[in-house]
């Protein structure tokens, strides 16, 4: 943490950059990280928390190695996205928004990714999977090293 902070000036404008960097490094922003950033930038932890919870890019809890995002926008919804979510949730053994105990998967949903034509859409670590019919194959694809 200290080394990360050293990369940045003690300027409040750096907050977002620091948060991104921390998120990237640890996969989440922990409470001790919040207080370290607060001390570095001389702002209140509450202020940081506000920014943290505003952007989806940050998470407060450790996230999995692979982030599985199922689109629940209207188009994907009518094409069976809810079932995909249920399946994924059952396969992984976690609810939406949670991470598997072995920190391998995090399951998330999103409302419309802007590519409705190829729905239902599932994104894993930024990679788009179109016309998805089953979750188990996708999950298997990313289960290596589990």
């Amino acid at each position: 943490m200290e080394n990360i902070l050293k990369e940045f000036e003690r300027d409040q404008k750096e907050l977002i950059h620091i948060l991104h960097r921390v998120q990237e490094e640890f996969g989440y922003v922990s409470p001790p990280a919040i207080s370290a950033i607060a001390k570095h930038l001389k702002i209140s932890e509450n202020e940081i928390y506000s920014v943290l919870t505003f952007y989806k890019a940050f998470s407060l809890e450790p996230r999995g190695k692979h982030i599985v995002t199922v689109c629940m926008g209207t188009a994907c919804h009518v094409r069976g996205a809810p079932r995909l979510v249920d399946d994924a949730s059952r396969e992984m053994g976690v609810d939406v928004g949670q991470t598997t105990p072995d920190k391998h998967f995090t399951l998330e949903t999103v409302n419309c990714l802007g590519c409705c034509a190829i729905g239902p859409v599932v994104v894993v670590d930024g990679k788009y999977h179109s016309y998805v019919k089953r979750m188990d194959s996708i999950i298997k694809e990313y289960s290596e090293g589990r």
Partner: peptide, 24 residues
């Protein structure tokens, strides 16, 4: 924040979940 300099309460979350709150 502006007047008292305490910065205790802030907007937390966004959209329909938005509330006023403190860190954690």
């Amino acid at each position: 924040h502006e007047l008292r300099g305490a910065s205790t309460v802030h907007f937390v979350d966004r959209g329909p979940e938005a509330v006023i709150g403190t860190a954690l």
